[in-house]
Amino acid sequence: MERFIIESPHPIEKCDQAIQDLHAAGYLHQFEWGCKDNEHTGWAIVEAESLEHAKQIVPWYLRAQARIVRLVKFEVADSEHQISK
């Protein structure tokens, strides 16, 4: 499994729907929200088999705006050559 960060912006009128849909899918507890600060975005760090699997976590009507990034950890001993791959 790989780890991904999901950034999923949404319009203010979709706040309730996004929360309800993520709850129904079982992912609500993984998301944190900026909505109370007028930043209508949800963030989550998830484990998934692939980028496509991580993308499926986001409700279909928000996927086009979502940003999903694979996360990796590096050790001090990692060279620049290894990091750039």
Rank of each mutant, 00 (worst) to 15 (best):
E2H: 12
E2P: 10
R3S: 13
R3E: 13
R3L: 15
F4S: 04
F4W: 11
I5H: 04
I6F: 12
E7P: 02
S8R: 04
P9F: 06
P9I: 03
P9V: 05
H10S: 00
H10D: 01
I12P: 10
C15L: 09
D16K: 09
D16M: 05
Q17M: 13
A18L: 09
A18P: 02
I19C: 05
Q20D: 05
D21C: 05
D21T: 10
L22P: 04
H23V: 08
H23G: 15
A24P: 01
A24N: 04
A24M: 01
A25L: 11
G26F: 15
G26Q: 14
G26P: 13
Y27T: 12
L28P: 03
F31Q: 14
F31T: 15
E32T: 12
E32R: 14
E32H: 12
W33S: 12
G34I: 07
G34F: 09
C35P: 03
C35M: 01
C35I: 07
K36Y: 07
K36M: 12
N38A: 01
N38T: 02
E39Y: 06
H40V: 00
T41K: 09
T41L: 11
T41G: 02
G42W: 03
G42A: 14
W43P: 07
W43G: 06
W43D: 07
A44V: 05
I45L: 09
I45S: 05
I45E: 08
V46E: 05
V46Y: 13
V46R: 06
E47R: 13
E47F: 07
A48F: 02
E49F: 07
L51T: 00
L51E: 01
E52I: 02
E52D: 15
E52W: 13
H53P: 00
H53A: 10
A54M: 06
A54T: 03
A54N: 07
K55D: 12
K55A: 14
K55P: 07
I57Q: 11
I57T: 10
I57V: 11
V58G: 08
V58T: 06
P59H: 00
P59Y: 00
W60R: 06
Y61I: 01
L62V: 09
L62T: 10
R63I: 05
R63Q: 15
R63A: 08
A64Q: 12
A64T: 08
A66R: 04
A66T: 02
A66E: 02
R67V: 06
I68K: 00
R70P: 01
L71G: 10
L71K: 11
L71R: 12
L71F: 02
V72S: 13
V72I: 05
F74A: 11
F74E: 08
V76G: 04
V76R: 08
A77N: 09
A77G: 07
S79E: 13
H81Q: 14
H81E: 14
H81G: 09
I83S: 13
K85Y: 00
K85S: 00
